[in-house]
Amino acid sequence: MTVKMEASAGGIPHKTLLIGGLVTAVVCIYLTYLNQILGVGYFAFFGGIAAVAALWWGSDTIKHLCSYGLGTGVPSAGMIAFGTGAIAMIVATKFGIATPIVAVIIAAIIGAIIGYIANEIINMNIPVMIISLTELAIVGALTMLGLASMACGSFLFENMITNGAIVTAVGLSGAENAGILVANIDATGTLIGGCVFAVIFMLGAIALQHPFNACLGPNESQDRTLMLTMECGFLSMIPVAVISYAYLDLVAASVSLVVSLIGFVYTLREYFRLSRRDAYAWLDAKPIREVGGEQ
């Protein structure tokens, strides 16, 4: 892409977005644990909200990283975020109740290593590379953990490899239990065994890179980009809610679907409003206006 990218000045500072996104995402992922405590499924949608919060922060990180002239690097940044995050997230799901925190820590370590390799060994020499890739890895891990817990109602590995019923708080005592479960169940139709995880990976990766990729240009504005991020997040929640009909009960999956649809419709309308505000003109069936190019 040949367009010169300029990160918009002003707006919400990146640190605020970082703290807000990280805290909201971790808290919302923990709220899905209410499913285990109460033995229900309808708190699963908090996983999706966590993903929206993580993406909200992540798209601003991508903007900072890609304002260093990474043209085609915008979609790649989304992919590397989720590639590194996937490893951290799957490893972390074996840590029981500590899963979200462990996911953040492991993702930060892997992201920092990848950032170091990119900057120092491949010599990309971008000042914010290491910190940005660290942030993006955490975003990737939290988004996937959020969407995965939305699809199967829990962030525990045991639930991601079982089809249907949520393993309740009483029935789990960490990794040993998971080992027994793995040996005894048929995991071919499940979130991890059935590779539904691949869908979550792609949904998150495209949702992360799309907002800045779609809004880049001289008149990019932060509020519009972030609104589009939330729209992408809620849009990603819709298919995950549909998929969750296979793993959760009818009410739980329907609650997720309704929450996603409400969030999606609201953010899409707001995005249209902001686009209309920022556009040079909003024309319907009007001819080309010549401004000096060759006729």
Binding site: C215, P218, N219, D278, Y280, W282, V291
Partner: peptide, 12 residues
Amino acid sequence: ASLAKFEQPVYI
């Protein structure tokens, strides 16, 4: 919308 500077309208 991000190309407003160059007077490209949104043709809805």
